[in-house]
Design a protein around this nucleic acid. Sequence first.
DNA 1: TTCTTTCTTCGCAAGACCTGCAGATTAGCA
DNA 2: TGCTAATCTGCAGGTCTTGCGAAGAAAGAA
Lengths: 170, 170
Amino acid sequence: MKAPAELTAKFRASGLKVTPQRQLLFRLMHENKSHPTADSLFSVASVHMPGISLRTVYQTLTDLSSMGELRLIDVGSGATRFDPNIDDHHHLVCQSCGDVRDVYVSGSGQLDVNELDGFSVDTTTILFHGLCTPCRATQEVSSTVAEPLVGISKSNTSSKNTTNPKERMS
Amino acid sequence: MKAPAELTAKFRASGLKVTPQRQLLFRLMHENKSHPTADSLFSVASVHMPGISLRTVYQTLTDLSSMGELRLIDVGSGATRFDPNIDDHHHLVCQSCGDVRDVYVSGSGQLDVNELDGFSVDTTTILFHGLCTPCRATQEVSSTVAEPLVGISKSNTSSKNTTNPKERMS
DNA sequence: TTCTTTCTTCGCAAGACCTGCAGATTAGCA
DNA sequence: TGCTAATCTGCAGGTCTTGCGAAGAAAGAA
């Protein structure tokens, strides 16, 4: 996404007003690599501007995405994440900590798809689910303690929520 | 997913009971190509068995997915969809009607990913967003009526909900 | 600078989706 | 048949997101 100054100009040019709340959010999102949710961005914004509303955060993020300055990503963790990187890229999702990282994939536009018959593809989204380096290290340690393999258990619902949703921002 | 009779045996072998509700859901999901949500499956199930609970539908679908008989798919439309096809495949998602179709992609396992450094990939999910044939035909007709290109409008939030969520089952 | 118009913000309510819980019910084994 | 553990149902509650309206503020005009 563009720099705050450029976004200010773009908003004004579009007939939108530039408020202190929006300027703060422009700054917090610009070059943010953490793929925050609206709520985690709200937490950070609240530190800088106590009293800012979650509603305003949603509104501004939505505006930015309609302007093409932000990409909405849904990694299946429940809440939508917002990505200021609008390049053609995809995501790595850690199944343990929920962390999301950008990744560039060569040739994703020329994937060999069978039976498209008639369907016209506009965008392709690729999610790589796995384990990030820190979580893999943790799992290797705990696996030496040999957790028993359980069968089907009623309470073992594969929840959408990750064990340890990392919601910190840079 | 397996046929109802096989699922019955598998459930019993796992210490789970086979109730009429479950048998109905086994039948409705077996070879179901529509990627239903819990709620749409519940609607159909209610016709066959009035009084069945949405809670039971969720429970059974969750059980089936923990047994590996069903795949949970999240196409970003809000509700989780359930797919009895557990082959290695991906999905086409119509941005207009919300329809989801299975698609087989060659070589998706060997995508050329840069900067993986340390991240270990477990599963890859590919979503192709675009327009299905019927919706494309509709759009081509309506585009001759020349809808004006609007700028950024406040109410033009890119909602997760599709215009016409098709929730019918076969 | 002041005025005026229009857009924004905020707070709350509500909607969609999903899960936890508890009492009543039932499958399935002995 | 009788028993026990699993299941079903209904509801309450949690999370995420959006709609709405009153109060407030940005930005151009006078």
